[in-house]
Amino acid sequence: MTPINEALGDYSELFMLLAALTYTVAFLAFTADLMRARKLPTVTTAPAHTLEPASAAAAGTGTGAPGIRWSHGGSHPTETGPNTTDHTGIGYTPLRRPAARIAVAVSIVGLIIHLAGVITRGVAAARVPWGNMYEFTTTGAMLVMAVFLISLIFQDLRFLGTLITGLTLIMLMAGAIAYPTPVTQLIPALQSYWLIIHVSIAVLASAIFTLTFSLSVLQLIKTRYQKRAKDPESAGFLRLVPAPAALEQLAYRLNGIGFIFWTFTLMAGAIWAEAAWGRYWGWDTKEVWTFVIWVIYAGYLHARATRGWEGTRAAWLSITGYLCVIFNFTIVNVYFSGLHSYSGL
């Protein structure tokens, strides 16, 4: 068996600490961005991701103007507000938000340091770095940041930055304070390639659910605000938050992907359970909660197609699902007895 490299393990912890400090800076910058929202000018813009038909045409020909006149109407009502998101997309606008730019840059640096921490931990233990609670949280936190930053390529979700960096910090702190675990070899029950597959996908799904949780929370806040608001200018940080419908749209899409991964987690877990205990399903506490989460998100997907359940109710289901994910990970892992006693605590 490959020996443990404890010195490298110490470096890993140092990286984690540095990552947390970097994220703290990002958290402050994201918050500053939200605080400044009130002062942003009101602009009218076209949806940012709309290709210019004219330029697209030109790019296609390479000879300048071929004489084809292309105009694309679509149904994008232009709107006012710092963001152009009351409809289908959550695109970038030409608004200057220096604090947000700094926050994203710092987050990327933090993610790189964080990645270094996760990799050194894995190398130190000579195995995948997700074998106990400490490793689930630190690797999970990294995936949350990674999913968030990658999604920024496609959509302007910087308004989520405070929530996401905040949650990531909480996870890192929980890992360091509540679940500190030295670098160790795996207990026999975990020595299986299913650990690599099952747990990595579970953590990835949880990271995606973290994002949708944040979206759903903001959706509820914004819905509530819009019901009451007299003066849209008084919205404060909510001015940067897209319309509830757009948030719901995105949350739905991500929850769909998260649900696919969670379904796979459930399946892979069942296959592993079959190899380890001889039955693919036995209603062990951990299995029960994985099932409950799966059913709640299935309910969420149904809700979106059920009259009277879209919008606020669906958002509550998405939030409930995420709270169960957290419950499953913290309380069930630590306090419930069962076959899945891997917390390493």
Partner: peptide, 17 residues
């Protein structure tokens, strides 16, 4: 919307060529 733009773009490119 992206699909619509894509189709519009492809048609333009095709006929331009």
């Amino acid at each position: 919307d992206k699909e619509a733009l894509k189709i519009g773009g492809l048609l333009t490119t095709h006929w331009s060529a």
